[in-house]
Design a protein around this nucleic acid. Structure first.
Lengths: 156, 156
DNA sequence: TATTGTTATACTCTATAACTATA
DNA sequence: TATAGTTATAGAGTATAACAATA
């Protein structure tokens, strides 16, 4: 218990206290390490992790509307509206009004969006392979399961 | 493979594609669920997760300087300067110039900061207990280990 | 010259509130 | 009246660049 957690660099004798024993803390640190790694190749990859999720969802669910996306990711519709506007501005998605109910927009990837998604997917999967390099057989499934259960604990 | 990952809500038949199989994706979702949960009681708790880390570090390492903190958390010194300014403005920390080398500041909690940290710690540990409720014996140690190894894979 | 720290500026992500168009 | 979507505004969190003080 209370094992200090060295983190590289020559900061001898810094005491992390109980922080390393908190799952919340380690999830934050890990998320930040993963994000930093992707950011280093953001030019090569072209999209942020959040944008990658959105593009993937539209690839699997063409015609999806933004209120559904907002509910799935628990974002305010205004927040999502801005993200989608940016993606549309870059020509990666196309937003049309739905025929049946003209309040809804129908979202889908453009050809440029599909191409960008393929590029980003290659980069993301490279990163996942880098993680596999430090995991033993079965551990990927294990952590995916643990993370989903923990997130589920707060689904409320 | 390609198991769609239902996420509550009545969005029947939304296909998450490969996303649920990516560790990066699940870490992001979990971090976001944990953050949302803490945010709901931010008034009660008083500090953000990032501020909680900073206060904890200063509790365990009184007199720490900001460049060391910046290196540990891989933040730019300007970024950290702003966070510390906000904490100082709320009277939670006190920053003094070091005696030996007057370029350095010596950071420490004020009595109000110690009190706030105790309050936040109670809240954070409640959250950790909520996670334990969905974990079997040994699984907390398991996920802490897995997360640290994955973060370490990108330490570069 | 090099290092610590601050300030100015800018960009992303997020939310709330007020609005329009549609139902 | 209710819902989908947009815009305006504001607050964190992050970075880069330019600067001051100290070594």
């Amino acid at each position: 218990m209370r094992k200090p957690q060295a983190k590289g660099g020559g900061e001898a004798a810094v005491d992390f206290g109980r922080l390393p024993g908190y799952i919340g803390y380690q999830v934050r640190q890990t998320q930040s390490a993963i994000f930093r790694d992707i950011s280093r190749s953001i030019g090569e990859c072209g999209v942020t992790p959040g944008e990658f999720s959105l593009l993937s969802m539209l690839a699997s669910n063409p015609g999806l509307n933004s209120i559904t996306l907002a509910r799935l990711y628990r974002l305010d519709k205004a927040t999502l509206s801005l993200s989608l506007k940016r993606l549309a501005g870059r020509g990666l998605i196309q937003t049309d009004r739905s025929e049946e109910d003209r309040r809804y927009s129908s979202l889908r990837l453009t050809p440029a969006g599909r191409k960008q998604l393929r590029r980003a997917t290659r980069r993301i999967e490279m990163q996942e392979r880098a993680m596999d390099a430090v995991l033993k057989p079965g551990e990927r499934e294990q952590i995916l399961d643990l993370l989903q259960r923990i997130a589920g604990a707060f689904d409320r």
